[in-house]
Design a protein around this nucleic acid. Sequence first.
DNA 1: CGTCGCATTGACTCTATTCAATCCGGGTGG
DNA 2: CCACCCGGATTGAATAGAGTCAATGCGACG
Lengths: 252, 252
Amino acid sequence: MKTDSTGLPSVQQLNGTFEIANPCAACDVRTRAVCAALNNAELTELSEHSRHKELSAGDTVFFEGDPAEAYYVVMDGALKLYKLLADGRRQITGFLFKGDFVGLAFHTDHTFTAEALKGSKLCQLPKQRFETVADHSPQLGHRLLTLASAGIASAQEQMLLLGRKTAAERLASFLLWLSTVQGREAAKPLDRISVPMSRADMGDYLGLTVETVSRTVTKFKTSGLIRLCDHNEIEICDRETLSSIADGEELD
Amino acid sequence: MKTDSTGLPSVQQLNGTFEIANPCAACDVRTRAVCAALNNAELTELSEHSRHKELSAGDTVFFEGDPAEAYYVVMDGALKLYKLLADGRRQITGFLFKGDFVGLAFHTDHTFTAEALKGSKLCQLPKQRFETVADHSPQLGHRLLTLASAGIASAQEQMLLLGRKTAAERLASFLLWLSTVQGREAAKPLDRISVPMSRADMGDYLGLTVETVSRTVTKFKTSGLIRLCDHNEIEICDRETLSSIADGEELD
DNA sequence: CGTCGCATTGACTCTATTCAATCCGGGTGG
DNA sequence: CCACCCGGATTGAATAGAGTCAATGCGACG
């Protein structure tokens, strides 16, 4: 098949009811990402202008303050989003994984930096074109609103964590969340989770220092709540207790 | 004019270009609230099913966990939104004022409690009907998305505050934010701000205790950054310094 | 095998919390 | 009118939980 400079198959024509050949057809986050809300015509329209981006660990997608020029879908890998204070203090506001959408929460300029945690693949959608489609597609509009709504709800959950939870409660909440996220494909929480971020990243997400994260992990490990497996893998041994810690229930 | 049981003028007919008599026409948040994105037909459609709610200080609009049945526009007064932990620890996730919209961030159930800070008036829009209008109106859809996007951005700002700022930085940020919010109508930040919430509420919003809030207010007062006027009024005396504190810039 | 980056552990400090005692202003009832 | 009360705000003293600083451990990689 003939391909253009981006390696995407080119679209020949656009007529009628049969399936249009376009790169999205083969995309394995297609059914889970925002794209699921698009019909074929819209998909084709967008895919013609989409670009795939390959990132290595530490690569930055965009910086806080940069003009916003595109939306992104995470096709594979993991990103962290963060904000900085003048003296370098950092708050990670979210981690994104396969299927997640980057683009809510900015207007003309980005309000946070987006950086790859590890090798990742993104699908870049030009801002203007995406917004036009969004304005004309009730399905997509609805989907975006649902996503935004979920985003606000989880942001509020995170405020509760940052404002009112202890170190142990924060870590427990985080591990359970990771477990849920990584179980998305399987549609059930995983007991064996991979932790693609450093202790420093965990700290900057949980409003703690590296040392406190490390100490708390150790505490969980010695009390048998979790087990550290090979590099970057954690096994949840006692989900029950972890849950009650996460929810701040008094323990006797 | 004939009115129904809710005290709203009834709508006689709905034809053509001239203005339809409906209660929203006289609403003074009409141009600033979500409603600004509605055309006359949509406005009429919604207003026919809207209900106004009067609240006294401490009244609850809905509780976390309640099934979500409506959206609300704050016509006057002030609300606080909060989440609780099992043992009573509380995190206020936002304060809403005249013109603000309540309804993003919930799906079937409310994820937070909404309570009046003082006497307030709300416009209640039935969930189903509002969503139908939203799905059919690109203007409203766009507006909601913009609101949601702004909501996420400010939630992230709050995460930075809760996760990484000191007590003084938090209070300074809060006061400047209040100043901006109360200057919305005047389109410029106010130096004389009214503080409708208690110290406890401020603490629960900023992730601090009442005592720490009080001490920090006193510190700002004695350093001449602010002045306490009559009950619940604070004057910002040194916006410059307050800003640099809020942004975490090192002071010499 | 040595180095580098991240993680862990230890000792000490400090900020914000906790607990407790006033203070203050507004409302009430004698 | 004034004493009393009550809830919120302030202040003080002691404490604790997380932060800071510093040393060491560990694993990947050249």
